[in-house]
Write a protein that binds this DNA or RNA. Structure first.
Lengths: 334, 334
DNA sequence: AACCGACTCGGAAACGTTTCCAGAACGACG
DNA sequence: CGTCGTTCTGGAAACGTTTCCGAGTCGGTT
């Protein structure tokens, strides 16, 4: 490997026979003399010059980079977000940095703190939960931040949220309309933001449809397939009269489908099932799973757009966008 | 927002009453005088100093960043890779940049070219296919590159590959051992690297098990769920005697499962099904899908480790690692 | 007591850009 | 023909670090 030093703007200037300031101007379109531009371009070609983004960043004080931080990219919801955030940013020339915090609150905070190092121009953050220290860190963040998820009203930061409360209510109303009377709910942990919101939405749905609230039909477990399966087996054993189950996410709902199959109950004939998040799992399961989409892709796109506005210098007051949920009915509840 | 300028090493030096060189040395552990270190640290605390990584990068000529480029992060195989690459790099202080090239060869090449801008210290690349221009670009890449996927032998670049040929053979041998005699294969496009390798592996498996090769039982379609389902419906209509189907990935195999269900054929009683890639889909489908893992997570981890070695200055000849496939047998072929 | 080596510290020069500023060139106008 | 305004160019100063180099201090050896 020939360890030749890569050419700088000085080489170009020498070859073109002009000053480095003229080279810079020609390359950045700040010159009108066509002859100068042509000479510089020729010299650039000749020496194979490529600007150093690091030096540019140092001088211009922006990096052309944006970070996205979330718990685990393996989570389908975050994955959908990345898939929309990346092209949105890329189209206007930003690079995307990924931070998987791995469910570690300290790690989340250290990402926020590290923003002072100025290695990115902005951040999109999906916090697991929002502590006082988060609020403090968000207040003094060195660059614009957009938070995807619930956020106290007084935190001066752009915010995009899903409405999983309404989402859960939608699911319950749909199940009730299609004839279900004994609707069970398998939720995630109640001390997480989505777990809580979905529980509230479930009860709200029961209330609006006039169904009786029976907390013995509600279980809290992890947002995982096996957890959903085992919990469903137990629940259905104790309450054979259940005629519909709402899973707090698609993985749980898939577990429920498995459990029902093991118990020999027909879906949707005996029991209807609905999941949440509307991941690719839902469309390919058998029977195909009805699911409430919480608009992950949209949330990602909107967050990216909000951030881009800030990076453009917009200093309007922070915005709060709520993406409405939508239910896709498939065979599991038809 | 108080637009106060963030403090530099000069502020720290002034407050501590020492020179900027001493501050730099103290912060980088190049000084032994405990008193100096203490004073500098105190000053750092007092003014709230955080080093500028951009300035550091300019001076030290490395950025602490690594890029990972692939077609689409939505693909489960790439997703698994990212999930292992990120922590591996993070543990030694590197940040990860994501490039989804979106099946665009030009975009892939432009990523390679952009390496000359020196915004990353290294790259992990999963090329769709390897053209002459790729080879040329890889040869003159400005920073170390590790390629995940097939690569001509003479390209001087670290390389990690799966062995989907052996993977497909494994699947066929397993199906034959469990009693299948008429094994069909639904492959992806034959002009893609994995499509070709899996086809070869399928035929090799038939050969080693002594089963007759019948190309009317092989179909080429897209690596997608719907494609798999429709192709399976057609295939099984024409050949009702098929007693096993290998899908070239899990999505195709899921489509096959659906098709069999629509046709009222029992799995695995009437027809056994095996997929490839061993994605999360496989474990949650019903019946749970047997699948050949091509070691995406391992490939990601190994690629990251190889790259780290290069970044550490290792200039040994390029390495070539092949990750062996492994079959996980689940209900769909038991 | 003088000298020598080891060690520490400050000054200054990089790293590769952008941009401010001042001067040169030049046409136009009085 | 002199002056003024405009346009273009080159020099030089940043941006915020790291690191080289030389000067100074100090303890130990002859």
């Amino acid at each position: 490997m020939t360890q030749r030093r890569r050419p700088t703007i000085h080489e170009v200037a020498k070859v073109a026979g002009v000053s480095i300031s003229s080279v810079s101007r020609a390359l950045n379109g700040n010159t009108s003399n066509a002859d100068m531009v042509a000479r510089v371009n020729a010299a650039v070609q000749q020496v194979g010059y490529v600007p150093s983004v690091v030096a540019q960043s140092l001088k211009t004080r922006h990096t052309g980079q944006v970070a996205f931080a979330m718990e685990d990219i393996g989570n389908a919801a975050y994955l959908e977000m990345v898939r929309r955030i990346q092209p949105t940013l890329r189209d206007v020339g930003y690079r995307l940095l990924l931070h998987s915090t791995g469910a570690d609150v300290e790690d989340e905070l250290s990402v926020l703190a590290s923003l002072s190092q100025n290695y990115v121009d902005g951040l999109i953050l999906c916090p697991l939960r929002v502590t006082d220290r988060h609020v403090e860190a968000l207040r003094r963040a060195a660059v614009p931040v957009v938070v995807i998820g619930l956020l106290p009203d007084d935190v001066p930061v752009d915010n995009v949220r899903a409405d999983s409360r309404v989402g859960a209510r939608l699911a319950v109303e749909h199940l009730a309309e299609s004839g279900a009377r004994r609707i069970a709910f398998i939720d995630g942990p109640l001390d997480t933001v989505p777990g809580r919101a979905r529980y509230d939405g479930f009860r709200a749905g029961l209330a609006t449809t006039g169904l009786r609230t029976d907390d013995s039909l509600v279980r809290f477990t992890d947002f995982q397939f096996e957890a959903g399966r085992r919990t469903a087996l137990a629940l259905l054993g104790e309450h054979p009269d259940v005629d519909a189950v709402l899973g707090a996410n698609d993985l749980i709902a898939m577990g429920v489908l498995h459990a029902l199959r093991e118990l020999g109950r027909d879906v949707p004939g005996d029991v209807r099932v609905v999941g949440m998040d509307d991941t690719p799992l839902a469309a390919t399961s058998f029977p195909a799973l009805s699911s409430v989409s919480l608009g992950s892709a949209d949330r990602g796109r909107i967050a990216a757009e909000l951030l881009l506005r800030r990076l453009d210098g917009d200093d309007a007051p922070p915005e709060r966008v709520t993406v409405p949920p939508s239910l896709t009915v498939r065979e599991s509840s038809r």
